[in-house]
Design a protein around this nucleic acid. Structure first.
Lengths: 150, 150
DNA sequence: CAGGATCCCGCTAGATACTG
DNA sequence: CAGTATCTAGCGGGATCCTG
């Protein structure tokens, strides 16, 4: 009974945390859209091939599986499929299969996905705007000598 | 030399990917701010205790370490420290130490951190606005029978 | 009170191989 | 072309113990 005290407190905290999560579905959704590949895919499907400051975004369009695989470059087929599935499940993209000789599958943003894309671009815009400043801060932080904590 | 072909292609792709990343620092920054705890901490330091649709955000203020530990509820001391350090390094928060009898440490958003907080709230706003719609889509997707792929 | 150090487990996600 | 299945390593992150 002596060693369970800390564990019980942890369990209690965990329970409270879970309960808290349960009453706040927007939290999970926030976690989902915070996914690394989600952002990149939204970006790609939104018409911008990749987050490049100088490149202006194009128009949203349907894209093939392999096209996405090339464009995002670094994502594995597994993660691409997995991410696309979750996006489809959440109603952010549509999946269209055309029974050509080699099967053709294309993905496109829904209106809902498009609205998220707008928001993601805002976040991306922030990163692009402030990346230099952050790098400065980071360099300053790393360069500072081991000094006494004031 | 026969088995290295696929590996080499992978390595090449990896190199291109890394090179691409190198010329696009905003990508890494985007990954950083997409972190789970970063969002929650920004939210907490921004004055809103947690992402609750009905609760209006308060004003940004300095918060104690233990205060954050309680408020975010679910984050371990390790992750809290780790995340706060990265935020401090990036110049998004300031760390203030007051040498009281028990040491007092407080964290506060910088102007830069505040600007990110604004953007994060926009993302949070999107989640809160569309969470119901997403849940519907998700339910519909899960409820659909195992049908032939059209 | 505010962490640092260490151990360790589970899940993520990458590599590889196979299929309709 | 557009995936699926399996295996596995790496690491994120929790638990625990210790310090200033």
């Amino acid at each position: 009974m002596a060693t369970t005290t800390a564990a019980q407190r942890r369990a209690q905290a965990r329970t409270e945390f879970d309960a808290f999560l349960a009453v706040c579905p927007s939290r999970q959704l926030l976690d989902r859209v915070s996914d690394k590949w989600v952002g990149l895919l939204l970006c790609a499907l939104g018409g911008g091939s990749f987050p490049q400051p100088s490149a202006e975004e194009g128009t949203p369009r349907a894209m093939r599986y392999s096209e996405l695989l090339r464009q995002v470059a670094g994502v594995s087929p597994k993660m691409l499929t997995q991410t696309l599935r979750s996006l489809e499940r959440d109603g952010l993209v549509t999946r269209s299969v055309v029974a050509t000789v080699p099967v053709t599958v294309s993905y496109e943003l829904t209106d809902l996905g498009l609205s998220l894309h707008v928001t993601m671009r805002a976040l991306k815009g922030w990163a692009e705007t402030h990346v230099a400043e952050v790098l400065e801060q980071r360099a300053a932080y790393d360069a500072r000598p081991v000094e006494k904590i004031t």
